[in-house]
């Protein structure tokens, strides 16, 4: 079964057609890069996949669930259970410490667990920053924290909208390393990026132009190939 299927999806904002008849299929564990000029509809696509928005037309099936007809509440539940979101601006709750920012995601999902949250921080190399507030962290650290938060509930699909857009090269590489590990563990990743060298890390690159997919090319596989999602290294396993 595919983790994601889009059939003929369109998104219209008033007069603007942000997406036009987009069809896309993503297998479990697949790493897809989405490229395209600014305004080509990348964020719109991510929002629809991420259950943040509903498509104007077309069918979206996420892990076997048809999103198109769902109420906002059910969309929230699906997002919580299946999706990990990473943004270009590292959105964090400013008054919560690093570990608390992870715990809040656990809390909304099911049950806050500090030990597990600390393990997640360790995984992204931030264990020594657990009690720091977001504003005390560097950009790279903030993005790593966002990644740790996105992964804490073991999402089947990780959505990253220009995750390296605000990072320097060192931090970009750290983040990409994390994505490689994630990929190796079997998570499906959809990653929006401007940069070809970032897109090169993915298995497959989808090009958007004026809301249409104009090119959908697999790349030569590298690193450990994907398989079925097998394990969740950190997260609420016991649920």
């Amino acid at each position: 079964m595919n983790i994601l299927e889009l059939h003929d999806v369109s998104m219209v904002y008033g007069q603007v057609a942000a997406l036009r008849n987009v069809s896309l299929t993503v297998s479990p564990g697949e790493w897809v890069a989405v490229m395209g000029a600014s305004g080509s509809g990348k964020t719109t696509l991510m929002n629809i996949i991420g259950c943040m928005d509903r498509a104007s037309h077309g069918v979206v099936i996420l892990d076997g669930e048809k999103l198109s007809r769902m109420a906002a509440r059910d969309l929230t539940a699906i997002r919580r259970d299946k999706i990990g979101l990473i943004f270009q601006q590292f959105h964090l709750v400013p008054y919560l410490t690093a570990v608390e920012n992870i715990m809040i995601a656990q809390y909304y999902h099911s049950m806050a667990d500090e030990k597990e949250a600390l393990q997640a921080l360790e995984r992204v190399g931030l264990q020594h920053r657990a009690r720091h507030l977001p504003r005390q962290l560097s950009g790279g650290e903030q993005q790593r924290l966002c990644i740790a938060r996105a992964l804490i509930n073991c999402p089947k699909l990780v959505l990253a909208d220009e995750p390296t857009g605000n990072l320097d090269e060192d931090n970009q590489n750290t983040v990409l390393d994390l994505f490689h590990r994630l990929h190796a563990e079997g998570s499906a990743i959809i990653m929006v990026t401007h940069a070809p060298d970032v897109a090169a890390h993915a298995q497959r690159v989808v090009h958007l132009e004026f809301g249409r997919i104009v090119n959908d090319a697999p790349r030569a596989p590298h690193g450990i190939s994907s398989g079925e999602p097998d394990k969740c290294a950190v997260g609420n396993m016991a649920k």
Binding site: M52, R73, T76, R80, V93, I104, A105, Y108, R149
Partner: peptide, 16 residues
């Protein structure tokens, strides 16, 4: 608003 949007994005319901 951003913080609220973020909380919702990471799974908060209106009741939260």
């Amino acid at each position: 608003r951003r913080e609220i949007g973020l909380k919702k994005a990471i799974g908060a319901e209106n009741k939260h």
